[in-house]
């Protein structure tokens, strides 16, 4: 029996043990799955925010897209993955709430940094992966619905499920 390991908000986990890594109920958060298909090593990060603003390294690197990708790649290499063969998939980054009039500049200031946070997370994740030249093999991002992700680290397969659209595989 393969274990399902939960990756909660702002966490990241890597596995060389054929585990299924799962993040439940992603809204504006983005799940970044990175794997080496030959070595069968994979990891999942459940990021909340695009980038760390602090000059110091964050205590939870999984919280920010930029630090999560860097940290996950390091852990995967530690488990025997080869940097050149790494591939990735992205899921999440929805905009869950549409506040009335949220498109106006005034509403944007009033609503704080969470406006469009989903879209900004996706962009930051793509950029962080691009910087390390890790190709994105599949994406199910954006929209305004929640998603659950199950990432099979032995095959690189990502199952996405949502209340509104059921299941699909990346």
């Amino acid at each position: 029996m393969i274990d399902t390991v939960k990756v909660g908000v702002a966490e990241l986990k890597a596995s060389d043990n054929h585990d299924v890594l799962a993040s439940f109920g992603l809204g504006s958060c983005v799940a970044i799955a990175i794997y080496d298909p030959l070595m069968k090593v994979g990891g999942l990060a459940h990021v909340m925010l695009p980038e760390s603003r602090s000059p110091e390294p964050p205590a939870m690197p999984g919280k920010f897209a930029d630090t999560a990708v860097a940290c996950l790649v390091e852990e995967l290499i530690g488990l025997g993955a080869r940097k050149r063969s790494l591939k990735s998939k992205l899921v999440g980054g929805a905009q869950m709430f549409e506040l009335p009039g949220a498109s106006s500049a005034e509403a944007k200031t009033a609503c704080g940094p969470s406006v469009n946070i989903g879209a900004r997370n996706i962009v930051a994740a793509r950029e962080a992966l691009g910087k390390l030249k890790i190709p994105i093999e599949g994406e199910d991002t954006g929209g305004n619905h929640g998603r659950t992700v199950r990432f099979d680290t032995s095959t690189g397969e990502v199952e996405v499920s949502s209340i509104r659209f059921g299941k699909s595989t990346l």
């Binding site: 702002a10 439940f24 992603l26 909340m48 939870m60 869950m96 709430f97 969470s114 619905h145």
Partner: peptide, 27 residues
């Protein structure tokens, strides 16, 4: 209070939005 936003979906997805506002500097 601001105007209310509404969503019907997974609890985690709804909470993401709230937490993103608060989480920048705190774990």
């Amino acid at each position: 209070p601001s105007v209310p936003g509404f969503a019907m979906d997974m609890a985690g997805a709804i909470l993401d939005h709230v937490l993103a506002d608060l989480a920048a500097s705190e774990d």
